[in-house]
Simulated scan of single mutants.
Amino acid sequence: MRTLYFDCFSGISGDMVIGALIDAGADPLQMEEELKKLNIDEEYSLSWGKVVKNGITSTKFDVILTSKSEQPHEHSHSHGHEHSHSHGHEHSHSHGHEHSHSHETEPNHSHAPHNHHGSRTYKQIVEAINEANLNESVTNMSLAIFKKIGEAEGHIHGLPLDKVHFHEVGAVDSIIDIIGAAILIDQLGIESVQSSAIPTGSGHIHIDHGVYPVPAPATLEILKGVPIASNVIRSELATPTGAAIAAVLAGKFGTLPAMTVESIGYGAGTKTFENHPNVLRIIIGDIQ
């Protein structure tokens, strides 16, 4: 059985997942074409390339917003990771979401479905996925991951699912991360997914609502039932998007299973830690 294993020794975020999948041999150009079915491709461009993290060559994936805002979109690289994904939980400056140009500062998107804060409702995201004519496997994976995050956000904010507004996850880059990851996993013919325990990091982060502990409330809610690994790094290592991808897709959490390894991929996060490569490793192989 063709199995993908998430080795989350430095946490997990949506863009780290995509970087690792590309690094392992998935085709990002096919993903880019499939994503056009969402009809939001005027809002972003994608970039990926090799970077070295503490001696490990890995692939960094970025979503660059092309919104007509008062700020040049280059800020997504220069300081964007200090902004949260608006709602903040995807504040993941820790690594990944790192493309994270906060939509809070970009009110002038012209493309629906979207309000002036760059948020989309859960209903709008579900409709967009269902109307995109993606294949059934990609559609189902994407909807399940969004539902996991939507339920967590709703629980924390005291809202039913149909009233949940996604600020961070409604942001274009997070939509791309989730659906893009589903496209690449489907493309690679993955039949089962396993994962290590998820280190969340520690410390505090600044998000829209104030100073929050790490893991952020949404991330912790998403990781209910998932083994969390201890980690001394004082930074946010797992983002809601990354946590939800692992929580939804992994059928089993534990150490690397016995497998014949076929390919390995390293996906880079934005932050660099002094004694620790900030990458997600994925291992793809056959389990007898």
Rank of each mutant, 00 (worst) to 15 (best):
K37H: 08
L65P: 09
K53L: 09
L4W: 00
H89Q: 04
M31L: 07
E98M: 01
H87L: 10
L46M: 14
G25Q: 08
T66G: 04
E106H: 14
Q71C: 01
S102H: 02
Q30P: 00
S78W: 12
E106D: 14
N39H: 10
L35D: 00
H99E: 13
D62N: 10
H89W: 12
P28D: 08
E33D: 06
H103P: 10
E34P: 03
N108M: 11
H103V: 13
L29T: 09
G11N: 06
H103Q: 09
G80W: 00
G19P: 04
E70I: 15
N54L: 11
D15A: 02
V63E: 01
S47D: 14
Q30T: 15
H103Y: 07
N115K: 13
H73C: 04
Y5W: 07
E98I: 03
I129Q: 07
S78G: 04
S58L: 10
H73V: 01
V17L: 13
V17K: 02
H87M: 10
V17Q: 06
S13W: 06
G19R: 04
S78I: 09
E34S: 07
L29M: 03
H97K: 01
S84D: 15
H114S: 12
F61A: 08
H79A: 09
W48D: 09
V17P: 08
T59S: 07
T121G: 12
S10K: 01
S84Y: 05
H91T: 05
S86W: 05
K123C: 00
